Amino acid sequence: TTKIQIRLADGSRLIQRFNSTHRILDVRNFIVQSRPEFAALDFILVTSFPNKELTDESLTLLEADILNTVLLQQ
């Protein structure tokens, strides 16, 4: 498993454990389930350093190389 910290656009944080085989789409779905107010918003996930937009949501967390990292919601 891996721990992902997500810094949300409103300044708050979410921390969740995922399997390395989960997909970026699963992280997006977790955000929307945790904070339904973001469901209607068009947002992207970005790595904190170096900044990289995670546009291919079909990638696993392992394939995207974002295990144990911080993601930013923009």
Rank of each mutant, 00 (worst) to 15 (best):
L61A: 08
V46Q: 01
L62T: 12
V70F: 03
L25A: 15
R17H: 12
V70S: 13
D56T: 03
F30G: 07
R23N: 13
L67S: 14
E57A: 07
T55A: 07
V27G: 08
R17F: 07
S34C: 07
L59T: 07
L45R: 00
L8C: 00
Q33K: 12
A64P: 03
I31P: 04
L45K: 11
V70Y: 00
H22K: 05
L25D: 05
F30K: 03
D10N: 10
Q16P: 00
R17N: 14
L25V: 15
A40C: 08
G11K: 00
T55Q: 09
F49T: 13
L62Q: 15
P50A: 11
D10V: 03
E57K: 05
R7Y: 10
I24K: 05
L25I: 13
Q5R: 07
D42N: 15
L14Q: 05
L8W: 06
L71T: 13
D26A: 00
R35Y: 08
A39D: 00
R35G: 01
T1L: 05
R7A: 09
L41S: 11
I4N: 09
F43L: 07
L67R: 13
R23W: 07
D10A: 02
K52C: 12
F38L: 09
T47D: 09
I31F: 06
R7D: 12
E63Y: 00
E53V: 15
V70W: 05
T21Q: 14
S34P: 11
E53D: 08
D26T: 01
N29M: 05
S12E: 06
R28G: 05
G11P: 04
E37G: 04
F18E: 11
Q33E: 09
A40Y: 14
F18R: 09
L54T: 00
L61H: 09
L61T: 02
N68V: 03
S20Y: 12
T21S: 11
L72N: 08
I4M: 10
L54E: 02
E63T: 02
K52L: 03
T1P: 01
E63M: 03
K52G: 00
P36G: 01
S48P: 10
D26C: 10
T47P: 05
F43G: 00
Q5L: 07
L45Y: 07
L45W: 00
R23Q: 03
I24H: 07
E37P: 09
L59H: 06
A39H: 06
L72H: 12
F18Y: 11
P50F: 03
R7L: 14
Q73E: 04
E63H: 11
D42Q: 02
T60H: 04
F43S: 03
Q73W: 03
L72R: 03
L72A: 05
R28D: 04
L41M: 13
Q74C: 09
R7K: 15
K52Q: 10
F38T: 02
R23F: 10
S34Q: 14
G11T: 02
Q33P: 00
L67Q: 13
S58Q: 00
S20N: 11
K3N: 11
L67K: 14
A9G: 00
A9S: 06
S20I: 13
L54M: 08
R13A: 08
Q74I: 15
F43I: 00
F30V: 10
L59W: 11
V46I: 10
I15G: 01
F30S: 01
L41R: 09
L72P: 02
L71K: 08
K52I: 01
L62S: 13
D26Y: 04
R35W: 04
I66G: 08
D10H: 02
L41Q: 13
L45F: 06
R7M: 14
K52F: 06
V46A: 07
S48M: 11
T69M: 08
S34M: 11
L25R: 15
N51M: 13
E63S: 06
N51V: 14
I66W: 14
V27F: 03
S48A: 15
L62M: 12
S34R: 10
D26I: 11
L59E: 13
F43E: 00
Q73N: 04
L41P: 08
E63Q: 12
V32F: 01
T69Q: 06
A64S: 08
L59A: 10
I44T: 11
R17D: 14
R7W: 05
E53Y: 05
Q74K: 12
L14Y: 07
D42L: 07
S12P: 03
R23I: 09
F43H: 04
E57V: 08
L41I: 14
L67H: 14
I24R: 05
N51L: 13
N68K: 00
Q33G: 01
A9T: 15
E53L: 08
L25P: 03
I4F: 10
F30R: 01
F30P: 00
N51T: 14
V70N: 10
T69G: 15
F30A: 10
L61P: 02
V46N: 02
L14V: 07
E37D: 10
F49E: 14
G11A: 01
T69P: 08
Q5C: 15
K52R: 15
G11V: 05
L8Q: 02
T47S: 14
Q73F: 12
L25S: 15
V46E: 11
S12Q: 05
F43A: 09
S12F: 08
Q33I: 08
D65A: 01
L14R: 05
V70Q: 13
N29R: 07
V32D: 02
S20G: 04
T60M: 09
D65S: 04
N68H: 10
F38H: 07
K52T: 06
T69R: 07
L62H: 12
P36Q: 03
T60I: 00
L14I: 06
D42M: 07
V46W: 09
L54G: 05
S12V: 04
S58Y: 03
T47K: 12
E63D: 05
A9V: 15
I15Y: 13
